[in-house]
Amino acid sequence: MQITVTVNDQPYTREVEPRLLLVHFLRDELGLTGTHWGCDTSNCGACVVQIDAVPVKSCTMLAVMADGHHVTTVEGLEKNGELDPVQKGFTECHGLQCGFCTPGMMLTARWLLDNNPDPDESEIREAISGQLCRCTGYENIVRSVRWAAEHTCTPEVSA
């Protein structure tokens, strides 16, 4: 069936099978491979994207369910050549190693900060508790999100 999904502010109209998972729509149909997948059971969170500004697991959503909605992926975090503070925070605080969980972590972090601009450590840990990282032990992810919270108004900090 035909769907139109707005991804990172750009509308895309495609003919898809109803069973096509949103993560495959983004990766295989649109070539947006920044969204990863790591499990089949919605436990790992590598596939998190935002639908209408709310993070969801795109491996557990059909592309047809995103018809008419706005999707934001990691590729859409950078605006007009300016990195999101969350992206800068992950660089500043070594919030990533292999980089596989990073896009999903950053999209959830963005949502958290949009709703709670000054989260404490436990709020950050809870927010990302549905997303696994096998490299960082989470410590520097938490620090990265805190960094982003503290630098939201100063986008000129060098990365």
Binding site: S42, G45, V48, V54, P55, V56, K57, T60, M61, T108, E126, A127, S129, G130, Q131
Partner: peptide, 9 residues
């Protein structure tokens, strides 16, 4: 119940 991202959906 589950996790915050799953709870969104």
């Amino acid at each position: 119940i589950a996790d915050p991202v799953v709870r969104n959906r």
